[in-house]
Design a protein around this nucleic acid. Structure first.
Lengths: 138, 138
DNA sequence: TTCATAATAAGAACTATTCCTATTATAGAA
DNA sequence: TTCTATAATAGGAATAGTTCTTATTATGAA
């Protein structure tokens, strides 16, 4: 959490952050790795993972877990919610009314100290819904 | 999803389901494995995983993903929400008002076909909060 | 320009889960 | 009850995603 080490500004770190911003819809480590390697072809997957960890620690990106086993990375660090396509697995931002933590009754939340309320919507994205419709007609 | 094969009623399968019910707070596969082995000491982890998959397919239990990397298993198959302790990792049921899918505006959910809305609360359970308080005083 | 060391590439190690296969034991038939 | 086909098992190998290790490279302060 606390930041003390000097951090060098490397080409890989810059490209990793830029890729997350440009890819949109919360890419996975491998998707970021693939994008970064188009510009810096010798970049290793471990460098991607290490920098993703640093960027999360610095609060510059957020790690998002979906229904699948991969971690997705999000450059929007504000409070917001996610929608995930159960067919293609993509994770995107979605704007439903957030739950205000202060309105939660301590007893209904089992006397926990509430830190965060996450709303995750599962559904089928328009592209996958269209594709499924086509397949059904055949 | 659809069930056609005959299913044998084995001691392992019965103990796995009973362990999930008795352990409470959504145990992981290894926690279930440990509990089952106290009664059936030769049970293997692959048997636990295979039966968990069958029980999920049959709709008898639900798989729940938390902030950690392990999958948790829940014998409450109705619609409800979860609260997770960020210190000890335990996942439990919690009763906050569920979001009614029909009230979601198609545009706000990016024109997805919405299947499910999951609310996950992250916090610190009373036991861990107390422990942290003790450590602070030392 | 030099130099200490942060960051890197490459791949080994790790963790949770799934898959494979010879063996065991369930449940329907005799 | 005994027999038998095969579903389910134990044990361990394989896999996927992530983290760790180490020799090498390159950043940035002096």
């Amino acid at each position: 959490m606390l930041e003390r080490q000097p951090r060098r500004n490397t080409a890989q770190k810059r490209m990793i952050l830029r890729s997350i911003e440009q890819l949109g819809c919360h890419p996975t480590a491998v998707q970021i790795y693939t994008a970064v390697r188009e510009v810096l072809p010798r970049t290793s997957l471990s460098t991607v993972y290490r920098n993703l960890g640093i960027l999360v620690d610095q609060g510059k990106i957020k790690a998002v877990k979906g229904a699948g086993s991969e971690i997705h990375y999000d450059h929007n660090t504000g409070a917001h919610n996610h929608i995930e396509c159960t067919v293609c697995g993509r994770v995107c931002d979605v704007h439903v009314n957030p739950v205000n933590i202060d309105t939660l009754n301590p007893e209904t939340v089992s006397n926990y100290v509430v830190l965060e309320v996450r709303i995750n919507i599962l559904g089928i994205c328009p592209e996958c819904a269209e594709q499924l419709e086509k397949e059904k007609l055949q």
